[in-house]
Computed example of a mutant assay.
Amino acid sequence: MVYKAIDYRVEADVAVVTLNRPDVMNALDTQMRAEVLDAVRHAPDEARALVLTGAGRAFCSGQDLGDRADVANIDIERTLRDEYEPMLMAIFECPIPTVAAVNGPAAGAGANLALAADVVIASEAAMFLQAFTRIGLIPDAGGTYWLPRQVGFARAMGAALFAEPVPARQAAEWGMIWEAVPEDGFEAHWRARAAQLAKGPTIAYARLKQAIRHSYANDLEAQLSLEASLQGDCGATRDFREGVVAFLEKRSPRFEGR
């Protein structure tokens, strides 16, 4: 696929997907959703970590309401099922670590696109806004899934009902995101974080993601059984052996993702 709405680059085992419609604050249209889906699906074939970020001053302003001639007659359910769901599930199920580097405002579906990543690192210039009730809608693109799990019922309900912006630092305090960092040096910071993940034990990362996500549905006995099975997979890898040898030799491990 030729990318027109995003920029896609792989550097030092890190795939960077940049939402690239800065003139509309990287609003999500049909083209962009298809391109993000394609890039996320291909990234594990050529990278060991994936970053989603935005061009210009915003991360993503959400659904592009100008994407259709007659906004009032958009088939929202079809759009969510056919375009948003595959994109979000590709991010959620991506076998390599995913990082949302939120460089600026993330609103509506844009906020929830960020929250689909494994780790969200935000510039202190960023904010997260569940803007949906402002136009008579409910949070979608996974918003009703992510928010209560990350911030609890009361904060999720308040953020959704009042549709008020949550600044990045407050989002970090709430547990909505991993960290908020100063705008100055933000890109260098997320690149360093992504590089750290790309050098890590990627098989263990994939199993870790699987274990944590299944924990919401499992009771303790089922989760302990799943942990044992997944840990068995990790214990059979070359990375585990390298990790033990490096520990005994008091050096940094050189993981290969095998």
Rank of each mutant, 00 (worst) to 15 (best):
F240H: 11
E83D: 08
A34C: 06
R169P: 03
E93F: 13
V17K: 01
Y216I: 06
Q150S: 14
E93N: 14
E221P: 06
G143K: 12
I138V: 14
P86V: 08
A47L: 09
A34H: 13
L137Q: 15
A107M: 12
L226A: 11
L65T: 12
M176Q: 05
A15D: 02
P148V: 00
H189T: 12
A111I: 03
A101L: 08
G110M: 02
V166L: 14
I6D: 02
D29A: 07
A43E: 10
P253W: 04
G200C: 01
P182K: 07
W146G: 01
P86C: 12
A100D: 00
L230N: 11
S252L: 14
G136E: 08
T144N: 09
P22H: 05
H189E: 10
L208V: 01
E46Q: 14
A126C: 05
E124T: 14
A180Y: 02
G257N: 13
V40I: 14
I135M: 14
R48S: 14
W190N: 00
D233S: 09
F132K: 03
G158S: 11
E249L: 15
I76A: 10
V102Q: 11
Y205V: 02
D118Q: 06
K250T: 09
A156W: 01
I76Y: 08
R155E: 15
A100E: 03
L37P: 00
S252G: 03
H42T: 01
F255K: 04
M32N: 10
F128Y: 14
A55H: 13
D29V: 15
A192W: 09
Q63A: 05
I212R: 12
A228S: 10
F162S: 15
Q31H: 13
A58V: 04
M157K: 04
A55W: 08
D82Q: 13
L161E: 14
E187H: 01
N218F: 12
Q150V: 13
E35D: 07
Q31A: 11
N26G: 09
A131L: 05
V71R: 06
F92P: 04
S229A: 14
H189A: 10
K209L: 02
A188E: 10
Y3N: 01
L129F: 11
G257F: 13
A172E: 09
N26E: 13
Q223L: 07
A141T: 08
V245L: 06
S252N: 02
I96R: 03
T53A: 09
V16E: 08
R9Y: 03
K250Y: 10
D67G: 15
F128V: 04
A58N: 04
Y205L: 09
H42L: 09
Q210Y: 02
P253H: 08
A246Y: 12
L220S: 06
L80M: 03
P201W: 04
E183A: 09
F132T: 00
